[in-house]
Amino acid sequence: MLYRKTKGYRVFMIFNFCLLSLVMLAIAFPFIHLISISFSESAAILGGRVVVWPIGFNIDAYLRIFDHPTILQGFKNSIFQTLLGTSIGLFMTIICAYPLSKTFLKGRKAFVLIVMFTMFFSGGLIPTYLVVKSVGLIDTIWAVVIPFCITPYYLLLMMTFFQGIPESLEEAAMVDGLNPMQILFKIVIPLSKPVIAAITMFLIVYYWNNWFNSMIYLNSSDMHPVMMIVRNIVAGADLASMGSGIGQNDLTTLSSASLKAAVIMVTTIPVVCVFPFAQKHFAKGVMLGAVKG
């Protein structure tokens, strides 16, 4: 649709541009501020002079991070946990959503109601912990992957998307001799790349930032993900080990604030770098899954 560029239209566009610019600035400013602090010297940070540009530029905070005894192991744990959790979660979501998208399935409405019920009510932390402990998953990687591999919202989102795929395609495939599993993996999944990309991004962000479940279910510090280490550093519980090797000259250029900012940026960048590659499919998948049904 074409709009005439009337005076009212121009005013609206200017207002819209200004509003979106303010929103973008509000989103970007915290990251810019953290980057500036992470590259600034201690005196400038303590004096409150660092806003959007580093003062006394140095990279000591980042060097100190990678000298930390457990930070690299934490990155390995987070990558493994994210890859494993995302793969299992995506597979389980697809396997559950596909049959629920079929209206001829007996008891479908009851299953959908059960799924929706869990969106509003859960068993709680203590019952969940007792169940995980009773099956022997405590202090294993499975304790932070299996109990949380299916999210009801993602399941309903994918189910809604599957319902929008024409049934004639599946009927034609059945005439050609394909069974339901072959139809799912050869026809439905290739047509569902947008919603799969969207849910994959959701799962990656969830498992990468999932420090709370690790704190509850993982007793061994060797298995803690990097976000658990970041939480300890930001809370001040792990700053001593990071600063144990700092000399007197380093104290003039390195502070706890710069260490915290550097750690936050280092652990945020991997997810930020992944998003642009899936942005096109991500936005399309969310919108299509929201309007079809």
Rank of each mutant, 00 (worst) to 15 (best):
M24V: 15
M174N: 01
V144Y: 07
G245N: 15
P127M: 02
P147K: 12
P194K: 07
G8S: 12
V132M: 08
K109S: 12
N179D: 15
A197H: 05
P69K: 04
K193I: 06
A262R: 12
K76Q: 14
G85A: 14
Q163W: 00
I45W: 04
A172C: 07
H224A: 09
F15H: 00
H224W: 14
V115F: 12
S134D: 14
L83V: 15
A237D: 14
P99V: 10
D67A: 14
A44D: 03
F75R: 01
H68N: 13
S38D: 08
V286T: 06
S241H: 03
L169K: 02
L251N: 05
V145S: 09
C18H: 00
S21W: 11
Q73F: 06
G89A: 06
M265E: 10
L137G: 08
P180A: 02
Q248A: 14
T253N: 05
V131T: 15
S36Y: 03
M119R: 08
K76C: 07
L19R: 05
V132C: 11
E170C: 00
V132A: 13
H224C: 01
T252E: 11
S36W: 00
G285P: 05
T253L: 05
S192F: 00
G247Y: 11
Q182V: 11
G107Q: 03
I183E: 03
D139R: 08
M13E: 03
G56E: 00
I65L: 15
V205P: 03
P276R: 00
C273M: 12
V112P: 09
L25K: 03
G289I: 08
A143F: 09
V291G: 07
M265H: 05
G177M: 01
G293P: 02
I35N: 01
V205H: 07
M223G: 01
Y3M: 04
T267E: 02
M223T: 07
T200V: 11
S42K: 14
T268V: 04
S38Q: 10
G48A: 12
F212Q: 14
I138L: 15
I216S: 10
H281M: 13
V271E: 01
F15L: 09
T93N: 12
K186T: 10
F66I: 02
I183P: 01
C273S: 10
F185T: 14
V263D: 06
A44P: 02
V195R: 04
T93Y: 11
M1Y: 10
L83T: 06
I216E: 12
I216A: 11
E167L: 04
G236P: 13
L239C: 13
A172T: 12
K133T: 13
D238W: 12
T253G: 01
A278I: 06
S122F: 02
M215K: 14
Q163M: 04
